[in-house]
Amino acid sequence: MISIKSVAHSYNNNQQLSFKDWQINDGEQWLLLGESGSGKTTLLHILTGILKPQHGEVSVSDTSIYNLSSKNLDQFRGRNIGIIFQRPHLIKSLTIAENLLLAQSFAQLPEDHRRIDEVLESLDILHKKNAYPNELSQGQLQRVSIARAVINKPALLIADEPTSSLDDKNAESVLQLLIQQSGLNKATLIVATHDKRVKDAFTNTYNLV
């Protein structure tokens, strides 16, 4: 279960962003809707444990994440939260398989090549396993970044504008993959977007004002 309670944050004491309480049950799929500047990225960063809010409490899998030490929080994030960015951001000097190995070892989990093959297979990019990121197309890269997010079977999968730089066809397929992968890995899914094409696929919506 994931919840935020009376969370508020402000940058440099400017206008304060406060977020209404939110509770997500395991396995649910949510849409986080909001225009640019509404604090969408801020809320995502707070949820993923990379930005400590000035007020309020955040818990993921019943762990109050901001009570963890910096090092434990990093490890917790690596194991329990998978993040998909608007752009793939793979490490260019490493092959696809090595990028996934990296995610395993940073989370201090054993390296598991079978798991890597399994995830790449389910995303239909196993044949690119030993290629470097600059040899892949944008759509393939986005699929690798989904693979990287789910490789450690996280409890929470968060996607930040995963479709905004893609055309209709790719956007649709990425969305399907996200829903499919969160189901496969029994992960709770949150997709933050202002992309209208995405809305119909979700029943649960959290609106930022």
């Binding site: 994030r77 951001h89 995610a103 990287r148």
Partner: peptide
């Protein structure tokens, strides 16, 4: 530094 930030989100600690 974006790469390094991504590494942090993957669970790498500051000291790593």
């Amino acid at each position: 530094n974006y790469d390094l930030a991504v590494m942090r989100t993957l669970g790498a600690s500051r000291s790593k």
